[in-house]
Computed example of a mutant assay.
Amino acid sequence: MGRSSLKIAIVRSSLHRGSGQAVHIRELSKGLLKLGHEVHIFSRSIEDETLRGIGHETKFTLDGVPFIRHFGFAASIVRAVRDFDLVHTQYHPSIIAGNWIHKIRGLPHVFTYHGFAPIRFWNNPFQKLKMIDHRVGTYFSLRLGLDRIIAVSHFLKRELVRNYRIEEQLIEVIYNGVDLERFNPRADGRKVREMYGIGSDPLVMFIGRLTPYKGVQFLLQGIPDVLKEVPEAKFMFVGSSRFDAPRIGQLLSDARVRKAAIFTGYVADRMLPQLYASCDVFCYPSLWEGFGLTPAEAQAAGKPVVAFETC
């Protein structure tokens, strides 16, 4: 490596397959590696197979104890991150690990803020408590051992200034990027249409986690109205579901909706360009986003995007 190259530790407590932040970290790492830097990713759980080549899973006691495990994870990262030039943390509780490394090892600490969906959007009491924990923990951690904060949108920068009382000059806005070599109008979606028996029917697509705040219920509720105008239309929902089964059943009570809706479950990242290419319209009715990555990918693929103006 050249004299100006850095050895960088990127830390996030968990990296779920298909998550937007896993994509963010993967693309950031690729960019840093191209610039000649050495990159290592540290996490307690790396589900995303595209990150395992440069990823390190840390093990620690009390991993199964909610909330308390934040500090076990932070301690494991302090032990693992030695002889680095920079630590870059993502989300809570990874920021705690960055705070400790900054104080103990004197390393520069950069934190990327992706935001938190409002608590009112979560139905599960434990999930609500988890979101409160993330927000409170982030509020205090932002004041302990940070050199710079990256917000992935101006909306989130305003949130940091307004809700977390962070000085503007500490925050840099850097949008999430899209790989235009992968996502472009040249991709071929015919295999996807063949795989799901869509043929030449008009196709509306949603890609993302099937959670209430992503707004998939509104798209499902709107299907009967669309079918009145375009009876042959199909609607594809790509992503793992976190809805309760009874709620899905209620939304699919109409036989016409069941016939028109296609649920793929989780689909490997390598299939995304073909998925975007297969659709005619991309619909993303999310109620909240820090930066919606899939609408940007769909636009790069040359598809019209329908979305709420939520942020």
Score class of each variant (00 low, 15 high):
residue 237 F to N: 00
residue 244 D to V: 04
residue 244 D to A: 03
residue 72 G to H: 10
residue 207 I to F: 13
residue 31 G to L: 08
residue 62 L to V: 09
residue 244 D to R: 04
residue 284 Y to A: 01
residue 144 L to W: 15
residue 309 E to V: 11
residue 206 F to A: 01
residue 114 H to P: 11
residue 61 T to W: 09
residue 118 P to F: 12
residue 238 V to M: 03
residue 107 L to N: 02
residue 195 M to H: 11
residue 123 N to W: 12
residue 117 A to Y: 12
residue 131 M to W: 15
residue 291 F to C: 11
residue 2 G to L: 08
residue 153 S to Q: 07
residue 197 G to S: 06
residue 225 D to M: 07
residue 178 V to M: 12
residue 297 E to Q: 14
residue 245 A to V: 14
residue 35 L to S: 07
residue 302 G to M: 14
residue 100 W to E: 02
residue 27 E to Q: 14
residue 39 V to L: 06
residue 239 G to Q: 07
residue 280 D to Y: 09
residue 189 G to S: 04
residue 190 R to H: 05
residue 30 K to C: 10
residue 48 D to F: 09
residue 215 G to T: 01
residue 169 Q to N: 13
residue 149 I to A: 01
residue 35 L to T: 11
residue 143 R to S: 10
residue 54 I to T: 06
residue 211 T to K: 08
residue 34 K to S: 11
residue 181 E to R: 09
residue 226 V to I: 12
residue 141 S to D: 12
residue 298 A to F: 15
residue 92 H to L: 05
residue 198 I to K: 00
residue 76 S to G: 05
residue 75 A to W: 15
residue 36 G to C: 05
residue 111 F to D: 07
residue 162 R to K: 11
residue 170 L to F: 15
residue 225 D to P: 12
residue 216 V to P: 01
residue 269 D to C: 04
residue 246 P to N: 02
residue 235 F to A: 01
residue 80 A to I: 13
residue 271 M to Y: 08
residue 229 E to W: 08
residue 90 Q to H: 15
residue 103 K to H: 11
residue 158 R to G: 06
residue 267 V to H: 06
